[in-house]
Amino acid sequence: MSLFPRLVVLLLPLTLFLLLTCSLSLAFQSDELLLDDEEFGIEGGHSHPNPRASTDSPPSTTTTGTASRKRFSESSSSDSKIQFSFQHAFGDSDFSEAGNFSARIKTWSHGAQTLTKLRFSRNPLSEVEQKKFQNLLQEDDFYRIRLPSNVLTPPGRDYVVSSVKARCLSGDGLEEHFVIHTEGANILAVNYGALGACPYPRQLKPPTRWSFKSHTILKNTELAPRTPIFAEDVLSGEEGEGEVVQPIERSFWSKYWMYVIPLGLIVMNAITQAMNMPEEQAGGQAGAQAQQQPGSAVQRGANSGVRRR
C-alpha cells in the first residue's frame, strides 16, 4: 500500500518529463491515439471497473474539477462528455423531464472513471408546471427530483430520488442546491434542498421569479485517516528511544523548577547573609542591642500586667 503512492510520486515527474519532451517533438500523433484508446476503455470500462482505485491516485476529490487533476488528465487519463437527464415531479405526480446535466467522465489508465465538470441546464418551468408548483406551496407538499443511478447506462439499477418541501425552495427566487454523491460513473445519491435554512413552521411565500438558481456540488468519498502506528517506530531503533527519553527529562526540569529556584534563592540569600554578617558584627552590634531592649521591656510589662489582674 505504502509503496504504491510512493512509486506514483516517483514516476509521475518522470512520465511528465518524458511526455513533455515527446510532445515537443511529435505532438500530433500522440494526442489522437491516446483519446481513441481511452474511448474504447470507457465502453468496456464498466464491465470490470475498479472504481476504488480511483481514489488512490488523485488527491482528495471532494469538489468538482480541481486544478490538480488537469495535470493528470494529460498524462494518464482521458475524458469524454456525457449527458444525463434530470427529472422532477410535483407531489405524487409522475416524473417528467426538467433539464439535464452534462459532465465529463474521466477514464483513468487503470479503468476507473470519475465524473467532473458538472454543468446543469434546467428547462424553464412551463405554465402548467408553475401552477403545479403553486399547488405544492399551498399544500406544503414535496417537490421531488431524480437522477439515474448510473450515468453511462441510465437509469442504472434504479433512479436516485430526493425531495424537499416546496416551501423551502421558494424565497426571493427559486434557489436550489444539489449535492451529487458519485462513485465512478455511479450516482449514489443526490441531496437536494434549499441553499439556506428552512425552519419548521414553513412560511407560504410565492416565488417572485420563476427561474431556478441552481448550485451543484459533486462529492466523492473521503479517505479515512490512517490508524497511527507507534509500536513500529519504537522498535525501529535508537531514534524511537531518544524520543521517549527526551520528554521525561524535559518534564523533570519543568516539574522541579519551582523547587530549584527557591533553593537557589535561599542559597544566594545565605551567601549574601554570610558575607554581610562580618560587617554587621563589626559596626552595628551596639545599635541592634539598643533597639531590642525597649521592645523586651514592653513585652515584659504587658505580661506582668496580665498576671496582676
Partner: peptide, 14 residues
C-alpha cells in the same frame, strides 16, 4: 406511503 428519497449503492462495489 410515498417514497421521498432513495440511495442506490453501486452493487459492483458496495
Amino acid at each position: 406511503l410515498r417514497d421521498l428519497w432513495s440511495i442506490v449503492f453501486p452493487s459492483e462495489s458496495e
